[in-house]
Simulated scan of single mutants.
Amino acid sequence: MTTHENAYPLKMRESAAMPDFVVTSRANARVKQLRAATSGNARLSGGLIAIEGETLVHEALRSGLLLKTVFVSERRVVPRGLPAGVEVLRCSNEVLQSAVETQSPQGIAALVLPKQWDLAEALRGEPLLLVAVGLQDPGNLGTLIRSAEAFGATGVLTTLGTVNAWNQKALRASAGSVFRMPVVAVTEAELVGLKARGIRLFAAVAAGENVVAAGAADFTQDCALLIGNEGAGLGQKFIDLADALITIPCPGPVESLNAAIAGSLLLYEASRQRGVSE
């Protein structure tokens, strides 16, 4: 992981004074960089990600991320507590709105250097992993990342075809958890490698033969919970790779649960079991 604990001078901004200059051109270099980051263009954004809203800016600071530039609209003042080294640009409302994604901008955005995690960091301690297999809905992925942090998971792994965790909707759905939870893209070979490390793979499926109810599975051991694509679920190759198939019993007349809900319930059950065993 790339850390930024000492990235800023110790001196913090003592005042929330607004910069005198107001950016009124959409062609401003920093505004263009923010627009590129918002759209996920890593090349044009210089590898930075865009975050929007006071909550995410606060969470990024709390998580030790390096803020490069903070954009503030005319109708807002500069937030207090920004490190002294952060560039602050005041933009016209129209210019800032042109560079962000939400329909009703909150008047504050930032360019941030994201943390880079590796698989070893997701395997720390007694691993409890959530594996997102081809998830395409960024809201689902962001929610799962938030649940993973809430229920004590050590990491979220993503396979080929899964939406980027730095997607704007995923960022908002994670409510800042993506800044702290290791999210690592993995190959099928690396998933196979988890088994060699003694990590059991549990595949979440609908009810069927040789399927165990989640409450009867043993999640106290090192394990990974595989959650499939919203429409197709887990492909056969991932089902075959799993050590066990698990399901969430639903007495109501529904065929399946939303991927984020299913994953969150399984993470809760794992957390509950591990709490009882301690």
Rank of each mutant, 00 (worst) to 15 (best):
Q221H: 10
L241C: 06
E209N: 12
I227Q: 00
N229G: 08
G231Y: 01
D243H: 14
T220E: 05
K237A: 11
T220G: 11
G231W: 00
G215F: 06
G233C: 06
A232V: 09
V211G: 08
C223R: 08
G228H: 02
I239G: 01
D222E: 13
A244L: 07
Q236Y: 00
L234Y: 05
G235F: 04
G233Y: 04
L234S: 06
G228C: 08
G231F: 00
D222F: 00
Q221G: 15
G215Q: 11
G215P: 03
F238E: 07
N229W: 04
G235A: 14
Q236D: 13
A217Q: 06
Q221I: 10
G215V: 06
A216Y: 03
Q221Y: 03
A214D: 04
T220I: 10
E209M: 09
K237V: 14
L245N: 06
A224M: 09
L245T: 08
F238N: 02
G233M: 07
L241P: 07
A244W: 00
D218L: 13
E209F: 05
D243C: 12
E230K: 12
V211Y: 06
V211F: 03
Q221L: 14
L245I: 02
G233V: 12
D222T: 12
V212Y: 03
D243W: 08
F219C: 04
A242E: 02
D222N: 13
G233I: 10
A217D: 05
A214I: 06
E230L: 10
G235K: 13
V212E: 10
A213W: 01
A242F: 03
A214M: 13
L234K: 10
D243N: 15
N210P: 01
E230V: 12
G215N: 08
I239N: 02
D240S: 15
A214G: 02
Q236C: 00
N210S: 14
F238S: 04
L225C: 08
G235W: 00
D218V: 13
I227S: 01
A216P: 00
I239M: 09
A214P: 02
Q221W: 02
G235Q: 13
Q236N: 10
E209K: 14
D218R: 15
L234D: 04
F219R: 07
E230S: 09
A216Q: 14
D243P: 10
A213F: 05
A224K: 10
I227G: 03
A213E: 13
E209G: 14
A244H: 05
C223W: 07
A213L: 07
E209C: 01
A232D: 04
G231D: 04
A232F: 08
I239Y: 00
D240F: 03
K237E: 13
E209P: 02
E230C: 12
A224Q: 07
I239H: 01
D243T: 13
D240N: 14
I227K: 02
A244V: 01
D218A: 13
F238W: 14
D218I: 12
D222M: 10
C223F: 08
L241S: 08
G215S: 04
D240G: 08
I227D: 02
A224N: 09
L234Q: 01
F219I: 07
N229Q: 11
D222Q: 14
L234R: 06
K237M: 04
L241D: 03
A244D: 05
N210H: 15
G235M: 10
A242P: 05
I239V: 15
F219Q: 07
G233H: 03
G233N: 04
A242D: 05
I227N: 01
G235E: 12
E230A: 11
N229P: 11
F219S: 07
A217C: 15
A232P: 00
